[in-house]
Structure formats: C-alpha cells, structure tokens
Write a protein that binds this DNA or RNA. Structure first.
Length: 406
RNA sequence: GGCAGGUUGCCCGAGUGGCCAAAGGGAGCGGUCUGUAAAACCGUCGGCAAUGCCUACGUAGGUUCGAACCCUACACCUGCCA
C-alpha cells in the first residue's frame, strides 16, 4: 500500500487528453490540475487558507531553495513541508534541476519559446555570473544567498526531497534551453537518464529507511528539448526504467519547449509514457499552453507565472491580460474581471488595486496573486469539466477566441 | 543687526567658463515576466514644423567669442553670533 495512485476517469476522443484523479497521502487531485507554486514553502504574499479557498489542490515547493533556507532537517523536524507551511493538502517539490539552468546558463528569455537566434552553448552564458556548473556526476552550486558552494547529485536531491516530505517529488534532472546545441541536448538527455536511474535507486533506499513517513511518489523528468527523437527516446527510456522493482510513479515533462510546438512535443512524450501514470508539465501556465498540453496528454501543471506577474501588476482575465498599474485603471471602479468568483474580484475594484500598486502597498501583491491563481486554477478546472462533459473543443475555441481577441 | 552658506528640470540632488537640455535617485508614462537569484527588470522622461530651433539652472543687469558656472544689485531660505 503506497497511498499514491492515479486513475483515469474520462478521455478526449481520438487524442491523449484525459481526466482523472491522483491519490496522495494528503488528499486527492482531480486532473487536469494546476499546482500552485510556493517555492520557499510559501505562496508569495498569500495565506495558505486563501490558497485553499481559491481552489488550489496542491502546492509545489523547491528543494534547492529550501535546502539553502531553512535547511531540509528543519522542515523534516517540523513534520514535513505541508505541516511546516500550514498546507493540509498534497505537496510537490521540484528537485533543483531547474536551478541547474536558471542559476547556470540561464538568463532572460532562456526558456525562449521560439527558436529564433539559436546560439552556441558557449555564447549562452556570456556576460552572466554562473552560480551553477554541471558535470556528469552532479551540479556544483554557489549559493545566491551567501556564496557558499554546495554539491547536488541525484542522491543529494533525493535525500533532501525525502526530508522535505512532499507527496510528489521529482528526479534530479538537467534543465536545458532551446539555445543549447543539438549535440549538447543529446549528451544532456543521456546525463539526465543516468541521473534518473540513480534517483530511483536512492529513492528506493530512502523509502525503506523512512518507512514511518507517508509514501512519496517519484516522477522522472523527460528532457530532449525540441527534438522528436530525443524526446521520444527519453520518455521511452524513463518509462522502461526499473531499479530492483522500483519504477517511476509518474513523469515530468521539462525543459526547453518551443511555444509553437508545445502541444506537439508533449504529444510525442505522452505517446511514449505509460497511460496509467500521471504526467506533469513543468513550468507552464499560459491559457493557450494549457489547452495544447492537456489535449496532448498532460495531467498536471505548475508555474510561477500567475504569481510573479501578479506581483508586478499584470492580471489575467477572460479577455486577455492587462496591467492594472496603467493610468487607464485609475478611475476604473469595476472588478478585475467581471464575473470572477475570487476574493479580490468579489470585494475590490481595479482602481483600488491600481492605487495599492502605485502606493507600493503589500496588499497589492496579495490581492493580485489571489486573482491570478484563481484565474489559472479555474481555467484548468474548466478544461477538466469540459473533457468530462465531452465539449473540450467547443470550450477551447470559445475561451481562446475571446482571450486572444483583444 | 553681524558673519557664513544656499536658491538647478514635477521632487531630491550632482555640476563652478565651452564636451550641458544639464550626472544620479524618485515620481510620472509604457512594456516584459512560463519547474522564482524577481514586491524584479527594461524603455521613456522640457517643447517643437526636430541632423536644427526655442525655452530652462531664484530675479534683473553685466563681463566674455561663449555663462547653470565669473561680477553687481535685489528677493527668499538656512546656520552661527548678538
């Protein structure tokens, strides 16, 4: 009895999309679902109670960030991530694999969702301080907090994530970018696969060692950038991976995704992955991306975008995204989004949010984040309902038609 | 009343003869953000018929080829002494 499982409820005719339920020791997740990001064991600016009220089914934190601060031992002693942060529902942790890129070669637009300007790997890091350096055995990080040097390997990431105690944890992978060369992507996929095997082995041992703790599901991460052969091979290899009977409970799809081909890429991967395990698309949340990815077989998502953008004054509505900080909203005495059922829209006007942002009041971030997360969670909830009711295409067309109109 | 310092663009604040429509901040205006190094970052920021012209560094006048910068007077502000 693992306490973790996944069952498919309904399917999208002729395609790989489906709805279902993920079962975890801390509750169920109806899929497709958007998992709200709380990197440092907090959804920035928002109370856990509000996160629950806006409909979030799960929260995702980050192993690297929590390793640096406050340290996994403290989270462990506190009873695990959920107990520590006051979140009763399911939790996820990312492995630190994204930081291999964001603290290494990463720079603005590195996830660039188009292939324009493919560069050489050496060019990518030019002019930027690298805080992470990859080799075949692991990654050497320099802390952005105090400069301390830390070493992450698949085994280290697994141990940290076990101490953090999230219900779903991810294999330590190397996140690459569209700017890496094909040759680099090939080597990286191989490396990520070798790490996946080590993660499974470490996870197996840790699961036994810590059998008194709730079961943690391990997801392997499929890389391969924009290349069909690499993505399919990576997915196939992870699906087949078995270390002494230990297999992945689910799969993550990560790394460089061309926006225009996002659905296609997710489709390649999902065709190769086992149908009976959940698939999590890492770091994606734009409306058009949800539709494309769900249709192609993705079950869960997480993304910093709704909250980050909210803190910077941009709000999502069915009619597109807009910046409340703009002068046009100064006297706009209407809700952020007419008809929205979130806490913010039920009580406040655009003019008030505009004022809070202009005055640099903390409440601005709180109210804006609540709205954007609600918008995002509800959109995926609506997609799920549409699939269950057999009207996915209709819903997609009407939603995107209106969203992109402005 | 005496002595000293000060007055710069919406605000604060550099600049003490030409490279100054004037550093830097802030405000304003616009934009960006996809497994969070982000309550961050980028652009713009006197006017116009605009490879130039006009207006502008308290006010008025002067020196100079040339002044925000030097001189004179006046106005106001600040500190110290009476």
């Amino acid at each position: 009895m693992t306490g973790f499982g996944f069952t498919v409820r309904s399917r999208l005719a002729g395609r790989q999309g489906r709805t279902g339920v993920i079962t975890t020791p801390h509750g169920d997740i109806e899929t497709p679902a958007f998992v709200v990001v709380g990197t440092k064991a907090t959804v920035k600016a928002v109370l856990p109670q509000s996160v629950a009220e806006l409909g979030a089914q799960a929260v995702l934190a980050n192993a690297y960030h929590l390793f640096l601060q406050p340290g996994p031992d403290i989270v462990d002693e506190a009873g695990g991530l959920g107990a520590f942060m006051g979140w009763a529902g399911p939790t996820f942790t990312d492995s630190g694999g994204f930081q291999v890129m964001s603290l290494g070669v990463g720079f603005k637009k590195v996830l660039a969702m188009d292939t324009a300007g493919l560069a050489d790997d050496d060019v990518i890091a030019a002019g930027r301080t690298r805080l992470a350096k990859v080799d075949d055995d692991g990654v050497t990080f320099r802390s952005f907090l105090n400069g301390d040097v830390h070493r992450f390997t698949p085994e280290v990431s697994m141990r940290i994530q076990h101490q953090l105690g999230a219900d779903v944890i991810f294999a330590f992978d190397e996140c690459t970018t569209l700017l890496n060369t094909r040759r680099y992507q090939e080597a990286s996929v191989e490396r990520t696969h070798a790490w996946a095997r080590r993660c499974l082995a470490a996870h197996r041992a840790l699961t036994r060692e810590r059998s008194h703790r709730p079961y943690q599901a391990l997801f392997g991460v499929v890389q391969g950038a924009q290349y069909e052969d690499l993505r399919r091979q990576a997915a196939r290899d992870l699906a087949a991976l078995d270390v002494d009977g230990q297999r992945f409970d689910g799969y993550g799809i990560g790394g460089a995704l061309e926006k225009a081909n996002l659905g296609t890429i997710v489709g390649w991967v999902c065709e190769e992955l086992p149908d009976d395990r959940p698939r999590h698309l890492l770091g994606i949340s734009e409306p058009e991306d949800f539709f494309a990815a769900v249709e192609a077989g993705a079950d869960t998502f997480d993304c910093v975008n709704p909250s980050r953008v909210a803190r910077n004054g941009a709000l999502y509505t069915r009619d597109g995204r807009f910046n409340v900080v703009t002068a046009a909203n100064r006297r706009s005495y209407e809700p952020v989004e007419a008809g929205c059922d979130c806490y913010t829209c039920a009580r406040y006007t655009r003019a008030y949010l505009h004022h809070l942002f202009k005055a640099k009041e903390m409440l601005a971030a709180t109210l804006a984040t609540i709205h954007n997360e609600r918008f995002t969670v509800r959109l995926v909830d609506d997609i799920r309902a549409a699939i269950d009711q057999g009207r996915f295409d209709e819903f997609r067309d009407s939603f995107l038609g209106r969203y992109a109109r402005r």
